[in-house]
Design a protein around this nucleic acid. Structure first.
Lengths: 224, 224
DNA sequence: TCCGTTCATTCTGTATACAGAGCGTAAGAA
DNA sequence: TTCTTACGCTCTGTATACAGAATGAACGGA
């Protein structure tokens, strides 16, 4: 694997897990030394992160980890709703009913997972749902746009507390979406997606009001 | 301005205007020599074009100008419809009515422009509409997604013949969208956007059936 | 005491040199 | 005649050196 790819993956992981908090200055020289590579591949990694929106190079010469605010998350969800409702509608036309029947059953059984505390298994189920949606969409361009959203969402989700009650409701919302797609009811699938996203956004914003930085990151480095 | 930015703009312009046709191999050494810069900033430009989808680096080591096919355009318009209908709906909530009243009037008068052959003035009007939509959207993330679509659209539009009849109908479709946004009628604005996009796609695809390469590019270089 | 100017330091942007890998071609054998 | 193998070339990926610009601090003047 190329050094630039490794640097990109490493930095992306650090940003998504809040080890690099928003506002952190990203000095090319420091990062290159820390990652054990030269500045050339590192610059490629930073350029990629910048185009994906995880690094902000607009103000000043040196890049900083992009901001995560209530406003930016709300904007992100506005775009997300546009994409995911349309995706659900399209997927309803092209889906394999058996795939979404199986997903419906799994989301119906999800409270069992969550009641015994297996949150990881639930997130894996959601990932399977996303993957099934991508397959049903059958549109690489659209999928690329969704991936861009999911990247930022993964970072935002880290600041939301995963309380079991919310996750159980989330499972029920997903079950409705899956059932609608299974039945080929695009309108219902889109509406159920809107319902899910509004609730998801409300949870994140409610968490945000209490604390802006996750527990593992007590301090804000850089020019926040 | 940075050399990498100049290289990016130059290459983007050449791709969008079909001077670099799909399938053209993009050798770093040749391009760097032609543009009069070294490979380092050129690589940054190519990486940017690759992330934006204008250059395909997936197959083989050397990048090629990405493909434009009926399938890829249809996929692009599926994403475009998702974004622009939602944008029209949102803009209807936040717009300045006076701005879209003025645009409505201008689109109403557009047939006068087109009947005297001033196609450029019409395209400038459409650009003003896009800009007004961006302002009303008031969402940088959403706007970024729309810009990505418009980039590819600018290339696809080059292969569509701009017959006056179609452009006059296009002006009427835009007038409906503007009037709906002016009135705050998001549902109507979204529907009118769908109507416009379906007609626009049909025009491009119909042109595509006749010839795949615009008149200025008689040959397909590379592994098309 | 505060503001402006200047100097030094550091960082980015660019060029170039080098290594490794992939691909094409040509030659030899079956 | 065709397939396989080996050689060579070219291209990408990486490292490093250098120049220019921006920023911060320090000093001097008001």
């Amino acid at each position: 694997m190329r050094a630039s790819d490794r640097a990109y993956q490493e930095l992306r992981e650090e940003i998504l897990t809040w080890r690099l908090v928003p506002g952190t200055a990203l000095s090319e020289i420091d990062l290159a030394e820390r990652l054990g590579i030269s500045r050339t591949p590192l610059r490629a990694a930073l350029a990629r992160l910048s185009l994906e929106g995880l690094v902000d190079t607009s103000r000043g010469r040196t890049g900083v980890v992009s901001d995560v605010s209530a406003a930016s998350i709300t904007e992100l969800f506005e775009l997300r709703e546009a994409l995911e409702t349309a995706a659900a509608r399209i997927a309803s036309l092209r889906r394999d009913p058996a795939v979404f029947e199986r997903l419906t059953e799994r989301f119906e059984a999800a409270p069992l997972l969550l009641n015994r505390g297996d949150v990881e298994a639930y997130y894996a189920l959601v990932a399977d749902f996303d993957a099934a949606l991508d397959v049903a969409l059958d549109n690489p361009v659209f999928r690329g746009a969704l991936d861009g959203i999911r990247l930022h969402l993964a970072r935002a989700r880290r600041i939301a507390t995963d309380n079991p009650e919310r996750l159980i409701r989330s499972a029920e919302e997903h079950r409705l979406i899956c059932a609608a797609i299974r039945d080929g009811d695009g309108t219902f699938a889109a509406s159920a997606t809107t319902v899910h996203l509004k609730a998801s956004l409300a949870t994140i914003l409610a968490t945000l009001e209490n604390r802006l930085v996750p527990q593992d990151s007590p301090t804000l480095k850089g020019s926040a």
